[in-house]
Simulated scan of single mutants.
Amino acid sequence: MHSSGPAEEEQPRKRVPWGVMALVLLTGLALIRNGSGEFDTGPPQPASAAAADSRTTPQGVFARAPGPLPYSVVDRVRIPSIQVNAPVMPVGLDRDGWVDAPPPQDANLAGWFTGAVSPGEKGTAVLVGHVDNVRGPAVFYGLGALRKGNRVDVLRNDGRTARFEVYGVEVFRKDAFPGDRVYGDRGVPELRVITCGGGFSERDGYAGNVVVFARMVGVR
Protein backbone atom coordinates (compact mmCIF):
# COMPACT_ATOMS: atom_id res chain seq x y z
CA MET A 1 0.00 0.00 0.00
CA HIS A 2 1.28 3.45 -0.82
CA SER A 3 2.16 5.78 2.02
CA SER A 4 1.71 9.18 0.37
CA GLY A 5 -0.46 11.62 2.32
CA PRO A 6 -3.61 13.39 1.19
CA ALA A 7 -1.68 16.57 0.46
CA GLU A 8 -0.03 14.77 -2.47
CA GLU A 9 -3.33 13.86 -4.08
CA GLU A 10 -5.49 16.02 -6.29
CA GLN A 11 -9.18 15.75 -5.65
CA PRO A 12 -11.35 15.70 -8.80
CA ARG A 13 -12.88 19.12 -9.33
CA LYS A 14 -16.13 17.89 -10.80
CA ARG A 15 -18.28 14.94 -9.79
CA VAL A 16 -21.17 13.43 -11.68
CA PRO A 17 -24.53 14.44 -10.12
CA TRP A 18 -26.27 11.43 -8.60
CA GLY A 19 -29.43 12.34 -10.46
CA VAL A 20 -27.61 11.78 -13.73
CA MET A 21 -26.20 8.45 -12.57
CA ALA A 22 -29.60 7.30 -11.38
CA LEU A 23 -31.05 8.12 -14.79
CA VAL A 24 -28.35 6.13 -16.55
CA LEU A 25 -29.03 3.05 -14.44
CA LEU A 26 -32.80 3.39 -14.56
CA THR A 27 -32.70 3.04 -18.33
CA GLY A 28 -31.89 -0.62 -17.72
CA LEU A 29 -28.36 -0.44 -19.12
CA ALA A 30 -26.01 -2.97 -17.59
CA LEU A 31 -23.60 -1.58 -15.04
CA ILE A 32 -21.18 -4.42 -15.62
CA ARG A 33 -21.68 -6.00 -19.01
CA ASN A 34 -19.29 -8.92 -19.19
CA GLY A 35 -20.77 -11.55 -16.85
CA SER A 36 -20.81 -14.86 -18.71
CA GLY A 37 -23.50 -16.71 -16.77
CA GLU A 38 -21.97 -19.99 -17.94
CA PHE A 39 -21.68 -21.75 -14.58
CA ASP A 40 -24.22 -24.30 -13.41
CA THR A 41 -24.74 -23.04 -9.88
CA GLY A 42 -24.57 -19.32 -10.57
CA PRO A 43 -23.54 -16.66 -8.07
CA PRO A 44 -25.27 -16.58 -4.67
CA GLN A 45 -28.31 -14.33 -4.42
CA PRO A 46 -29.17 -12.13 -1.42
CA ALA A 47 -31.51 -13.60 1.18
CA SER A 48 -34.67 -11.66 1.98
CA ALA A 49 -33.46 -11.24 5.54
CA ALA A 50 -30.46 -9.30 4.25
CA ALA A 51 -32.56 -6.45 2.78
CA ALA A 52 -31.50 -2.98 3.88
CA ASP A 53 -33.42 -1.19 6.61
CA SER A 54 -36.07 0.96 4.94
CA ARG A 55 -35.28 3.91 7.19
CA THR A 56 -33.13 6.66 5.72
CA THR A 57 -30.61 6.52 8.54
CA PRO A 58 -30.03 3.14 10.21
CA GLN A 59 -29.41 3.53 13.91
CA GLY A 60 -28.03 1.25 16.64
CA VAL A 61 -24.61 0.01 15.64
CA PHE A 62 -23.93 3.21 13.68
CA ALA A 63 -24.64 5.56 16.58
CA ARG A 64 -20.93 5.94 17.38
CA ALA A 65 -19.69 6.02 13.80
CA PRO A 66 -16.46 7.98 13.29
CA GLY A 67 -16.39 11.31 11.52
CA PRO A 68 -15.66 11.50 7.79
CA LEU A 69 -12.18 11.27 6.35
CA PRO A 70 -10.64 13.59 3.75
CA TYR A 71 -10.40 12.62 0.10
CA SER A 72 -8.02 9.81 -0.85
CA VAL A 73 -7.72 7.49 -3.80
CA VAL A 74 -8.31 3.79 -3.13
CA ASP A 75 -5.74 0.99 -3.11
CA ARG A 76 -7.52 -2.23 -2.13
CA VAL A 77 -10.76 -3.77 -0.85
CA ARG A 78 -11.00 -6.67 1.57
CA ILE A 79 -14.19 -8.57 2.43
CA PRO A 80 -13.05 -11.41 4.73
CA SER A 81 -16.36 -13.29 4.88
CA ILE A 82 -16.28 -14.00 1.13
CA GLN A 83 -12.48 -14.14 0.74
CA VAL A 84 -12.15 -10.94 -1.27
CA ASN A 85 -8.73 -9.28 -1.20
CA ALA A 86 -8.40 -7.27 -4.38
CA PRO A 87 -6.62 -4.21 -5.76
CA VAL A 88 -8.84 -1.33 -6.81
CA MET A 89 -8.49 0.84 -9.90
CA PRO A 90 -10.30 4.12 -10.61
CA VAL A 91 -13.19 3.95 -13.09
CA GLY A 92 -15.42 6.62 -14.53
CA LEU A 93 -18.08 6.77 -17.22
CA ASP A 94 -17.49 5.14 -20.59
CA ARG A 95 -18.19 6.89 -23.91
CA ASP A 96 -21.84 5.84 -23.74
CA GLY A 97 -22.33 7.35 -20.28
CA TRP A 98 -22.37 4.05 -18.38
CA VAL A 99 -20.37 3.33 -15.26
CA ASP A 100 -17.24 1.67 -16.54
CA ALA A 101 -15.83 -1.52 -15.04
CA PRO A 102 -12.35 -2.98 -14.62
CA PRO A 103 -10.98 -5.10 -17.48
CA PRO A 104 -12.92 -8.39 -17.39
CA GLN A 105 -9.86 -10.51 -18.06
CA ASP A 106 -8.46 -9.62 -14.61
CA ALA A 107 -10.78 -11.61 -12.35
CA ASN A 108 -9.40 -10.19 -9.08
CA LEU A 109 -9.76 -6.47 -9.70
CA ALA A 110 -12.37 -4.01 -8.43
CA GLY A 111 -13.18 -0.48 -9.54
CA TRP A 112 -13.79 2.71 -7.55
CA PHE A 113 -16.19 5.10 -9.30
CA THR A 114 -14.42 8.46 -9.20
CA GLY A 115 -17.59 10.40 -9.98
CA ALA A 116 -18.58 9.84 -6.34
CA VAL A 117 -16.79 10.51 -3.06
CA SER A 118 -13.85 8.40 -1.98
CA PRO A 119 -14.58 5.71 0.64
CA GLY A 120 -14.55 7.35 4.06
CA GLU A 121 -15.61 10.80 2.89
CA LYS A 122 -19.03 12.14 3.79
CA GLY A 123 -21.44 10.76 1.23
CA THR A 124 -21.85 7.51 -0.68
CA ALA A 125 -18.79 5.88 -2.26
CA VAL A 126 -19.18 3.20 -4.93
CA LEU A 127 -17.10 0.11 -5.73
CA VAL A 128 -17.93 -2.08 -8.73
CA GLY A 129 -16.59 -5.38 -10.03
CA HIS A 130 -17.39 -8.32 -12.25
CA VAL A 131 -19.33 -11.32 -10.99
CA ASP A 132 -17.62 -13.64 -13.47
CA ASN A 133 -15.76 -13.77 -16.76
CA VAL A 134 -15.22 -16.40 -19.44
CA ARG A 135 -12.88 -18.35 -17.17
CA GLY A 136 -15.10 -18.52 -14.10
CA PRO A 137 -16.03 -16.52 -10.97
CA ALA A 138 -14.59 -13.02 -10.62
CA VAL A 139 -13.90 -10.67 -7.72
CA PHE A 140 -17.50 -10.06 -6.56
CA TYR A 141 -18.95 -13.48 -7.38
CA GLY A 142 -19.82 -14.06 -3.71
CA LEU A 143 -21.31 -10.62 -3.03
CA GLY A 144 -24.86 -11.95 -2.72
CA ALA A 145 -23.79 -14.19 0.16
CA LEU A 146 -22.98 -11.25 2.44
CA ARG A 147 -25.12 -10.72 5.52
CA LYS A 148 -25.82 -7.82 7.85
CA GLY A 149 -22.87 -7.24 10.13
CA ASN A 150 -20.23 -8.44 7.67
CA ARG A 151 -17.18 -6.20 7.27
CA VAL A 152 -15.79 -4.41 4.23
CA ASP A 153 -12.36 -2.83 4.59
CA VAL A 154 -11.20 -0.24 2.06
CA LEU A 155 -7.48 0.52 2.11
CA ARG A 156 -6.78 4.08 1.02
CA ASN A 157 -3.70 5.68 -0.51
CA ASP A 158 -3.27 7.97 2.52
CA GLY A 159 -2.46 4.97 4.74
CA ARG A 160 -5.87 4.80 6.42
CA THR A 161 -8.27 1.87 6.22
CA ALA A 162 -11.97 2.76 6.25
CA ARG A 163 -13.95 -0.06 7.86
CA PHE A 164 -17.57 -0.45 6.78
CA GLU A 165 -20.28 -2.68 8.20
CA VAL A 166 -22.94 -4.16 5.94
CA TYR A 167 -26.52 -3.23 6.80
CA GLY A 168 -28.23 -4.58 3.70
CA VAL A 169 -27.76 -6.68 0.56
CA GLU A 170 -30.34 -6.62 -2.22
CA VAL A 171 -30.74 -7.40 -5.90
CA PHE A 172 -32.52 -4.88 -8.13
CA ARG A 173 -33.69 -5.30 -11.69
CA LYS A 174 -31.76 -3.09 -14.07
CA ASP A 175 -34.99 -1.78 -15.59
CA ALA A 176 -36.22 -0.65 -12.15
CA PHE A 177 -33.00 0.38 -10.43
CA PRO A 178 -33.68 2.71 -7.44
CA GLY A 179 -30.88 5.15 -8.11
CA ASP A 180 -31.80 7.66 -5.41
CA ARG A 181 -32.05 4.96 -2.77
CA VAL A 182 -28.78 3.34 -3.73
CA TYR A 183 -26.67 6.43 -4.33
CA GLY A 184 -28.29 9.10 -2.17
CA ASP A 185 -26.16 11.00 0.35
CA ARG A 186 -27.17 9.93 3.88
CA GLY A 187 -25.02 12.60 5.53
CA VAL A 188 -22.40 10.13 6.76
CA PRO A 189 -19.69 8.01 5.08
CA GLU A 190 -21.38 5.09 3.32
CA LEU A 191 -20.34 2.53 0.74
CA ARG A 192 -22.08 0.63 -2.03
CA VAL A 193 -20.49 -2.46 -3.56
CA ILE A 194 -22.16 -3.50 -6.82
CA THR A 195 -21.98 -6.38 -9.27
CA CYS A 196 -24.32 -8.21 -11.65
CA GLY A 197 -26.93 -10.62 -10.32
CA GLY A 198 -30.44 -11.96 -10.63
CA GLY A 199 -31.52 -14.14 -13.52
CA PHE A 200 -29.35 -14.64 -16.58
CA SER A 201 -30.22 -15.06 -20.25
CA GLU A 202 -28.00 -15.45 -23.30
CA ARG A 203 -29.73 -12.53 -24.99
CA ASP A 204 -29.77 -9.98 -22.17
CA GLY A 205 -27.13 -11.16 -19.69
CA TYR A 206 -27.85 -10.64 -16.01
CA ALA A 207 -31.23 -9.12 -15.25
CA GLY A 208 -30.18 -7.18 -12.16
CA ASN A 209 -27.49 -5.79 -9.92
CA VAL A 210 -26.55 -7.02 -6.46
CA VAL A 211 -26.03 -4.00 -4.19
CA VAL A 212 -24.34 -4.09 -0.79
CA PHE A 213 -25.25 -1.23 1.57
CA ALA A 214 -22.61 -0.45 4.19
CA ARG A 215 -21.73 2.35 6.61
CA MET A 216 -18.34 3.33 8.02
CA VAL A 217 -17.90 2.17 11.60
CA GLY A 218 -14.16 2.56 12.14
CA VAL A 219 -10.84 3.82 10.82
CA ARG A 220 -7.49 2.11 11.16
Rank of each mutant, 00 (worst) to 15 (best):
V182R: 12
R147K: 15
A110K: 06
G136F: 06
S81C: 03
F213P: 07
V131F: 01
N133H: 09
V128P: 08
D132P: 09
K122W: 04
F200Y: 15
V117L: 06
G187I: 11
R163C: 12
L143I: 12
P119L: 10
D175P: 08
A101L: 12
V128S: 01
W112L: 03
V117I: 13
N108E: 13
M89V: 15
S81H: 08
V210L: 11
L127W: 07
V91W: 02
P90A: 11
P102N: 07
P189N: 09
P90W: 08
G208D: 06
F164H: 08
G198Y: 08
D204F: 13
G111K: 01
L93C: 05
V131K: 05
G136W: 09
D75A: 14
G123N: 00
V211C: 03
A145S: 15
V154G: 00
Y141D: 10
E190C: 14
R160F: 05
D175H: 15
P104G: 00
R135H: 14
A138N: 07
V126D: 02
G184W: 06
V134K: 15
G208A: 11
C196G: 04
D94T: 03
G97E: 10
D153I: 02
P102I: 02
K122E: 14
V91L: 03
L127H: 00
P90E: 05
C196W: 08
A214L: 06
F177M: 12
E121H: 09
V166E: 07
Y141S: 12
V88T: 00
G97D: 04
A176N: 15
A110M: 10
E190I: 02
G208C: 06
R160V: 14
T195D: 03
E190G: 04
D185P: 08
I82W: 03
R76T: 09
V188N: 10
N150Y: 08
L146S: 11
L143P: 09
G111W: 02
D106T: 14
D94N: 13
G129L: 04
R135A: 13
H130C: 03
V99S: 05
V126T: 07
P137A: 08
G92L: 07
F113R: 06
